[in-house]
Nucleic acid binder design. Sequence first.
DNA 1: TTTTTGGATTGATAAATATCAATTATTATC
DNA 2: GATAATAATTGATATTTATCAATCCAAAAA
Lengths: 231, 231
Amino acid sequence: MAGLNMINSCEKCTAGWKNFKHLSKSELETVNSNRYEATFKPGEIMIKQGSPASNALFMATGIAKSYIEGNNGKNLILDLEKPGSIVLGPGAYVNSRHNYSVAAITSIQACFISADIIKQISRTNSAFAESLLEDFCRRAVRSHNRMVSMAHKRMSGRLADILLYLSNDIFGNDDFDMILTRQELGEMTSMAKECVVRIMKEMEDSGVISSETSRIKILDKGKLISLSEKG
Amino acid sequence: MAGLNMINSCEKCTAGWKNFKHLSKSELETVNSNRYEATFKPGEIMIKQGSPASNALFMATGIAKSYIEGNNGKNLILDLEKPGSIVLGPGAYVNSRHNYSVAAITSIQACFISADIIKQISRTNSAFAESLLEDFCRRAVRSHNRMVSMAHKRMSGRLADILLYLSNDIFGNDDFDMILTRQELGEMTSMAKECVVRIMKEMEDSGVISSETSRIKILDKGKLISLSEKG
DNA sequence: TTTTTGGATTGATAAATATCAATTATTATC
DNA sequence: GATAATAATTGATATTTATCAATCCAAAAA
C-alpha cells in the first residue's frame, strides 16, 4: 500500500502523528501494516457522519473540514484538520458511529487506521492512551472556545476569530490562500454567506485585511484582535 | 472526613461513579482515602475557571452548572451536572487549568478527588482509562449537539431543546422544578432573559407547557419535539 | 476562444433578536 | 409580617442578521 511521496511507513512519515512517539517498534509496525493510504480530491468526503467508526483518519497532507450535517440541510463546520493530526471522532467511544463528517478542502493524502487497533494499543500502552486523552481534551477546549465565540460575539467578532485561527493555527502566516468558500466561512461562524461578504468588505475598507476572493492578507492584526475581543 | 448521610465511602456511595467499577479494592481505597467531602449552597462556586485543575469533582447529590465566563461579563452554560457524574474538565489534560467554572444550582454534596490520583490510576488500569475516555467522548458528543442547536435553530427550537434535556436527562419527568432562572436559561440557549420569558409564554399559550415561574410541566411533548426539530 | 457553471457580490427588504425602561411578582431578611 | 432585594414580566424600540433577487466574475469544460 505504501509508495506515495511522503508516506512510506509510519516510522518515516514526515507528517508523523506525535502520539506515535509513545509506541514501541512492534506497536508502530502493527499500525503500519494495518493502515490504508488514500488520496482525496477537493470536495470529496473522507468520513461520513453516521457511518461506523471503524477507522481513524490520519492527515498526511492537505486540509480537511470536520462538519456536522444538520437536519435542515445546514452544515456546521466544527474545525479544520491539518497534517499531523488524527481524526478519531468521539463517537468511536460512544456509539461506534462517526458523529460528524470530514471532507477534503484541498488535495489530501491520508491513512485510514483501524479504530480497533488504536483502542487495542491504548489498552496496553498507557502513555499512548494518555496522549489520546490529551488529543480529545485539546479538541474539547477548542470546541468550548468556538462555542463562546459563536454564543457571545456578533458577526465581525466571529469572523475575526476565524481569520485569526486560519492565520495562527492553520497557515502560520498573515498572508494565506482563502481555501474556504464564503459559504464555508459562514458554516464555520454561523452566518449567511452574504454577511460574510459584507463583513469582509468592511474589514477591507477599514484597512484590517486585504481580500482578493481567494487570497487574504491580514494588514492590521492588532485591529483584528480588537475586533475579536470587542465581540 | 466521611460521615454525612450519603457518603461514607466510595465503595458504599449511593451515587457511585460508574467508572469506579473498574477499580480494584485497593485502588478504590486509594481514592477513598484521598477524597474531600464538601457541601455547597445554591449559588456557591465549586470550581473556578482558570484555577489549577488539581481536583476532579464528584457529584453526590444536587445539580450544578458548568459554565464559561466570557470576557464581556456574559456566561455560557455548557451543561448541567447531576449526581453520579464526575467533573474533570479537559483542561486537566491540556494546561492543568480549569477552563470552565462549576457552581451549585441546588444544595450539593460532593467530593473533591485529586486529579493526579485519577491520572495515576488510569496509567495502571486500562479499563478505567478507557472509561475516562468514554466520559470525555460522551461530553464531546453532547457538546456537538449543543453547538448544532445553537447555530442552526431559532429561539423556540433552542429553548425546546433545553426543556427536553431537563425533562429527559436531568429529571426523568415531564413535570419538574425549574431550578434555572430565566437568566440562566438564556445563558444556556444564548438568548436574552426577556426572550426566554416571551418564548415560554408562547409555549404556554399554545398548550405545549404549563409554567408557574419555578415549576414546569410539559403538556404536549410531541409539539415540543416538533418545535425542536423545526428549529 | 466560447460557453458553462458555481461562487461572489450587491441592494433592498423582512425576520429575528436584543435592549431599555418600567412594573410586578417572589423570595429573603429583619 | 413588614421591608428589602432579586427575579420575572411587559411593551416599545433599536439592532442585528437572514433572505431574496439580480448581477457579476472567474475558473473549468468544450
